[in-house]
Simulated assay, not measured.
Amino acid sequence: MEYDLAIEDGPTTIPGGTGVLLVHPSTGETDRIDTDFLKPDTDHRLVVSTRTTAREVQQKLEHYDVDTETTDILDTLSVERGYSRRSSERVHYVAAPDDTDGIVEQVATFLESHDGKLRVSFDSITELAYYADEERARNAVERILALLEEHDAVGLFHLADEVHDESVVEGYRALFDGVVTLDVDGNVTAEF
């Protein structure tokens, strides 16, 4: 299955099973790239948020005209921040922001329970590593990439490069089929 890719400097389509790494400065404005990835040619999408709450994700999706009726949100933060959690058909939670097994299980459940073209946005690896540690974050990402391949889905994973050691960033670059880099001036380059 082929998926349209509406990311500047990238190919026009990518095959199912493709994982794309978005490398960006920690202050970089990634919302446009993220929502451009989520919008086209999709039946269902899942936003895994380790950085913002479900309410903030919902506002971003609405602002950029992403179809919220076909988008699920996995909020890993509200528990940590003490916010009330109102699970709904489209909003899900895990026990804590370092619950890597719970995150992977929720992604698996989403992919297994939806048909058609499926996209996953993971925002962000950096925040997951902050809560869980680098090794557990990397393991979770590898497991999610395997799930994307198994279900012919595609995913975009955020990584703030200056927060991690260079060897960690290079390790992630090597793990992904495509790497999109956003620099401090807002320029986008893509390697596939």
Rank of each mutant, 00 (worst) to 15 (best):
L61G: 07
E62K: 13
E62S: 10
E62A: 12
H63W: 04
Y64W: 13
Y64D: 11
Y64F: 14
V66L: 02
V66S: 03
D67R: 03
D67H: 02
T68N: 09
E69H: 12
T71E: 07
I73E: 04
D75H: 01
T76G: 02
L77D: 02
V79Q: 10
V79C: 05
E80A: 14
E80D: 14
R81M: 15
R81W: 15
R81I: 12
Y83Q: 08
Y83K: 11
S84V: 14
R86C: 07
R86P: 06
S87T: 11
S87D: 12
S88T: 15
E89R: 13
R90L: 06
Y93N: 06
Y93F: 15
Y93V: 09
A95C: 06
A95S: 15
A96R: 12
P97G: 04
P97K: 03
D99Q: 02
I103V: 15
V104K: 07
V104G: 11
V104Q: 06
V104W: 03
E105W: 05
V107G: 07
V107P: 03
A108K: 14
A108D: 14
T109P: 00
F110D: 00
L111R: 07
E112G: 12
S113Q: 11
S113C: 02
H114F: 06
H114P: 03
D115Y: 09
D115C: 02
G116Y: 09
G116M: 08
K117H: 10
K117R: 14
K117E: 11
L118P: 00
L118H: 05
V120F: 00
V120P: 02
S121K: 00
S121A: 14
F122G: 02
S124D: 10
